[in-house]
Write a protein that binds this DNA or RNA. Structure first.
Length: 259
DNA sequence: ATGCCTCCCCGAGGGAGA
């Protein structure tokens, strides 16, 4: 089962590029972030005519996450637990019914800039809630994963110019520590389990020719429970997608699980 | 790089992103 995560930076803006990528990459399941659309306006037909089940958790203008799946989806849940007041659409989870059941969580973690400040506080508070959900997920001892735009550069090697990100909410010590704290519960960071070394990125800014200079950062991640990690056959970043027509600033990252 | 694009809102130009 090929499962991808992709921050598309607006479903309306990606209404042509996204189906083109689906047709060529043929993922079974896709976790989308930044759909920037309310549920009623999400163009589900584009995906349903390709055989995908569609579940969305949208909001007007900002954020918004969705799941596309060629397999049945059960027990869909919207919103990260832990704060009833949180209005931002950044979390959706469901069970995919393949050979075995797989719990998948799609997330769009807050950016957090400028730091320090209220947006950075919101990011760290959100990550505490993520920690709680992650712990419960591990306790099931079932194959499960949390994937999406984490807005975290885990290590210096995950940025072309780490010094430029030193004070940024994506790379500040507090952000990276909060990410490590989740990882250290016992998750496998899928990409780093298979590929070492610098030069692997999932985001390139639209500005200043960042893509042409390969001035990127790796901020889109898959975290696998041990039961899911045991099933991993592959994990790749579809970097070439950044060079396609009218691209998102992020590219897809995917895992292949034997499930 | 406290922003050189691109997205959203809409129907001007500001907020947000990373």
């Amino acid at each position: 089962m090929k499962i991808a995560t992709f921050n598309i930076n607006g479903i309306k803006a990606r209404a042509e590029a996204l189906p083109r990528w689906l047709d060529e990459a043929q993922p079974d399941v896709v976790l989308l972030q930044e759909i920037k659309s309310v549920d009623e306006n999400f163009p589900r037909e584009i995906f349903e005519e390709r055989g995908y089940n569609v579940e969305t958790h949208g909001q007007k203008s900002f954020n918004g996450v969705a799941i596309l799946s060629k397999y049945p989806l059960e027990d869909v849940s919207r919103g990260l637990p832990g704060d009833e007041e949180d209005e931002q659409a950044r979390w959706i989870e469901a069970t995919v019914i393949g050979k075995r059941a797989l719990r998948i969580c799609g997330l769009y973690l807050p950016n957090g800039n400028p730091a320090p400040g209220p947006k950075f506080d919101y990011k760290l508070a959100w990550m505490e809630r993520l920690y709680e959900r992650a712990r419960d997920l591990l306790a099931t001892e079932e194959p499960a994963l949390m994937a999406g735009d984490y807005n975290i550069i885990p290590q210096a090697e995950d940025a072309k110019r780490p010094e430029a990100w030193r004070e940024d909410a994506l790379f500040r010590p507090e952000s990276r520590a909060a990410f490590r704290k989740v990882l250290n519960l016992g998750f496998t960071e899928a990409f780093r389990a298979r590929t070492q070394g610098p030069g692997h990125y999932s985001f390139w800014d639209y500005q200043a020719g960042a893509w042409n200079r390969n001035d990127g950062i790796r901020i889109d991640h898959f975290l696998l429970t041990p039961q899911a990690a045991d099933l991993m056959r592959d994990c790749q970043i579809d970097a070439a997608v950044r060079g396609h027509e009218k691209p998102s600033d992020h590219v897809p990252v995917w895992v292949d699980l034997d499930i």
